[in-house]
């Protein structure tokens, strides 16, 4: 969905520039250069995890660029056998993309909804696949689990929306903290069952803390409910958060391809290949895996070309993944430092 309309002459001017040797792009970038990406996590206080990303924002006036907010919110969901209830053992993910009408002023409401739906479909299919499912979303086995909502809001679109969405999603999921829970079960106190002394006790309003029927020990056989232990820290991170994929969009002008297209370039180049790669943690010996691949737009490709593009895409994705990981760890450190300073100043 291009955000700009271009004449034929403009389109051919852009593609001719790209095909030149050396290639020419309007902003002077190399074919495989990204624009400046800025990322911040923990921007929404009420969310369990959040991030804000902008690609290609103007450094001087902070204007322009693709801008996306992403936030996760956890909800408790009951699991039941009924097929109508969507709760599932081990929790589930629900992902939604919404576009601000301000980002697409020329689209009608109906086309905007279709576009949102298309973006939602691609993110949901990729991120909620069982191979990426975090295994700490369960609360009480067979009864309750967490439903993880990931909502992405596109505030403005200056090209390369798929890459930006996946970066934002990865950052928000990385940042997500699942609250710690403790199972609770109720047992009838033995003293209440027999003996007149116990009856007297129940008639009177006595503090029964010592013989409370509640048990919150870790290994419960018949957990009926759960409680949140009263801790300051927000919980534990999602399991396997290294695995969340990154997306690279290869814009294709055979024989060349380029990354991070601007809206003008997107309008001029109809063919795109989306590759979502997941990189397992460096310690394990597993290979990187493709989590999704989509072709977009018109035009044709041969199988040999796709084979090459997958290899090249993997290289670009690894670069992007490494850069993003460094930034995310940086953000973690920055935010812990901030918290420590706040506590230190409060103590003084």
């Amino acid at each position: 969905m291009s955000t700009v309309l271009l004449s034929k002459a403009e389109k051919s001017y852009i593609t001719a520039g790209l095909k030149q040797n050396p290639p020419q792009r309007a902003d002077g970038r190399h074919l495989t250069d990204f624009r400046l990406i800025s990322l911040e996590t923990g921007i929404a206080d009420l969310a369990n995890g959040s991030s804000r990303i902008s690609i290609g924002r103007n450094v001087n006036d902070n204007g322009g660029g693709t801008e996306i907010f992403a936030a996760t919110k956890l909800e408790v969901e009951s699991i039941s056998v009924a097929e109508t209830s969507e709760g599932r053992e081990g929790g589930r993910l629900a992902i939604n993309v919404s576009c601000s009408p301000a980002a697409y002023p020329h689209l009608t409401q109906i086309t905007l909804e279709d576009y949102q739906h298309d973006l939602t479909a691609i993110l949901h299919a990729t991120l909620s696949h069982s191979s990426l499912h975090p295994n700490n979303l369960s609360i009480i086995p067979g009864k309750k689990s967490w439903l993880l909502h990931l909502d992405l809001l596109i505030l403005s679109d200056a090209g390369n929306i798929h890459d930006a969405l996946f970066l934002a999603a990865r950052a928000a999921l990385w940042d997500t903290k699942v609250p710690k829970t403790r199972s609770v079960e109720y047992k009838a106190p033995k003293s209440n069952i027999t003996g007149s002394g116990a009856n007297e006790a129940s008639d009177m309003d006595v503090d029964t803390a010592a013989t409370s029927g509640f048990s919150t020990r870790t290994h419960l056989t018949h957990a009926t409910d759960f409680e949140l232990p009263d801790y300051w820290d927000e919980g534990e991170v999602l399991n396997g958060r290294d695995r969340w994929p990154v997306c690279v969009t290869l814009n294709l002008v055979p024989p060349i391809h380029f990354l991070d297209a601007t809206p003008q370039e997107e309008a001029a180049v109809p063919r795109r290949l989306l590759l979502m790669f997941s990189f397992p943690p460096s310690s394990s010996s597993h290979e990187p895996t493709l989590q999704a691949m989509r072709t977009l737009g018109t035009g044709e490709l041969s199988l040999a070309q796709i084979k090459d593009l997958i290899q090249i895409g993997q290289k670009h994705a690894l670069d992007l993944y490494t850069a993003l990981n460094v930034k995310l760890k940086d953000e973690d450190v920055r935010r812990t430092l901030k918290a420590q300073e706040r506590f230190a100043s409060a103590r003084r």
Binding site: H129, S131, T289, L290, I306
Partner: peptide, 23 residues
Amino acid sequence: LGTVTSVWQGGQIPPKSVVDAME
């Protein structure tokens, strides 16, 4: 024409197997 018009992949597949499956 020997051309591919669309590829639509999901799930978790190593790149080698993807190429193999496409062939």
